[in-house]
Design a protein around this nucleic acid. Sequence first.
RNA 1: GGUCCCAUAGCUCAGCUGGAUAGAGCAACAGAUUUCUAAUCUGUAGGUCAUAGGUUCGAAUCCUAUUGGGAUCACCA
Length: 588
Amino acid sequence: MDFITEAAVKAVKHLYQTDISPNAIALQETRKEFEGQVTIVTFPFTKFSRKTPEQTGTEIGEYLLGNLSEISAFNVIKGFLNISLRDAYWIDQLYDEILHQDFAVSKPNGKKVMVEYSSPNTNKPLHLGHVRNNLLGYSVAQILDAAGYEVIKANLVNDRGIHICKSMLAWQLFGNGETPESTGMKGDHLVGKYYVIFDKEYKKEIEFLKSEGQTEEEAKKNAPLIKQAQEMLQKWEAGDEEVINLWKTMNTWVYDGFGKTYNRLGVDFDKFYYESNTYLLGKDIVEEGLEKGVFFEKEDGSVWIDLTEDGLDEKLVRRSDGTSVYMTQDLGTAQLKYNDFHMDDSLYVVGNEQDYHFKVLFLILKKLGKSWAKGLYHLSYGMVDLPSGKMKSREGTVVDADDLIDEMEQTAKEQTEALGKVTDLTEEGLLELYHTIGMGALKYFLLKVDPKKRLLFDPNESVDFQGNTGPFIQYTHARIKSVLSRAGVDYAAKTGITEIAPVERDLILALTQFPTIISEAAKGYNPALIANYVYELAKTYNKFYHEKSILQAEDEMLKIFRLQLSSASAKVISRAMNLLGIDVPERM
RNA sequence: GGUCCCAUAGCUCAGCUGGAUAGAGCAACAGAUUUCUAAUCUGUAGGUCAUAGGUUCGAAUCCUAUUGGGAUCACCA
């Protein structure tokens, strides 16, 4: 559509002797109730045209009509100049752009970006919050890849610390040697079970100490279990063989479990970082900061940065005993990532509860003069809430990832069987189909909302399969495939068609927008834009499908054209869904 | 208390850097299948865009205040 913008700039120059920037021209899609496909808002031009918006629109419209052969007509309503493009223009768009193999394929832009996501703790299984994180991270990586970036998907596993020691300790004390093999439990769930047991027993101890007269705070500090856990952490840090072995064993269980869940979610990673390897990093950065005078040391030996001038607080970057805190590690890890990959941009897909942490982290790195700090970005997403409020692992009010996936597959199965359309697939094929549809519903449900916004999930209400949903879009794809497979003609070559119906034009128009949507989604790190787009596209296709017969078209040329249009739609739907990490079935 | 985020139909959400009469889906109601997959399509109904000011030719969108909700401000991660 750039040619219209350019021509409009010329029109303004010619008519009103004024130079304007192309950015000053607001091109928008014409609203459905009006004639035309593209609209220019002419209010801003009245300043120098010194005429009414209507007159200004008419003058520009006449200029464009006279100078652009693609334009067939225009109309002006108040300050809106609505432009109609010739059918030939849209037909060319289909043949020369959309059906071209390079359509919506960006050339490499020479930039490298890291997307860190997932980043689980190894003391409990994944829940719905992690699912949102994983799907977001994976989708953003796909979108950036489509936009021409070289993408590195990274996972920073939080595999050490007091919380893991809690699971380990509880297993030692109450586990009776249970293993995933002996119990048949998935490894991450088994470890999570002991995390919950720890918390339960710990609470009992606190209550007991309180009954003996201790305050809540004292009790929390003095409970034997927490002391044992802390001892265990010290032993771990000292490299105690027994503790390390237990840690390794239990982590192996967890990784095995996570691997299965990642697999079902369809996400993967190029690089794993482990906090057990990175938690000591950052100390040299602390030294560097002290030398540069960015940090200061207090009397007790703790090191801080004063961010009050930036509207923030003082922040600790090293404990008085010389050990690292979260911030220290993250400073070091950021440097490590950069040293490893020298990427231009680095995204952290982390919930918005950590907004403050990342604001501080990035600010510190900038103050330290790290040239790469400007490429850091916290992709902050909203929490997933239940109707009862926030999910809390310890209180058991979490929606478990594996359970959720099971339920989605089960629902997909019930829906498919109720419709009774797919009858000739093998058992294996059916299971794959249920997985595809169930995950399609779940992924679309989670990705269609703006990542920044919090998301409400009601476990008692199953995720829809109708309307603005993944299965709706998958269904549209399957339907197209079904028609294409019955085509009975070769539809590879261009037709000489010259006229098309409004629904067909609308569909082509929708298809042409795909590349723009990809770049906008990439710029905003926002899969929801893709989701909303592909939904609109599917709706437009369904309307076309309903109004026009493809295989029974009036003549052969029209039939071929509609097959081509359908094929193009299926391709774009499939690619767009792929950017969301969603598969589309051939039949359903 | 300081800082940050959010508020659009009964519910879940769109609404791009300000532009036309604020749009979808679900739920409700009424229709469409001798025709390519009805997980579809068409229609009806549903709104003081939290409230009050301001900027502008024009505000759901930008600014200020208020109300309501959430997050965060650990020598936890």
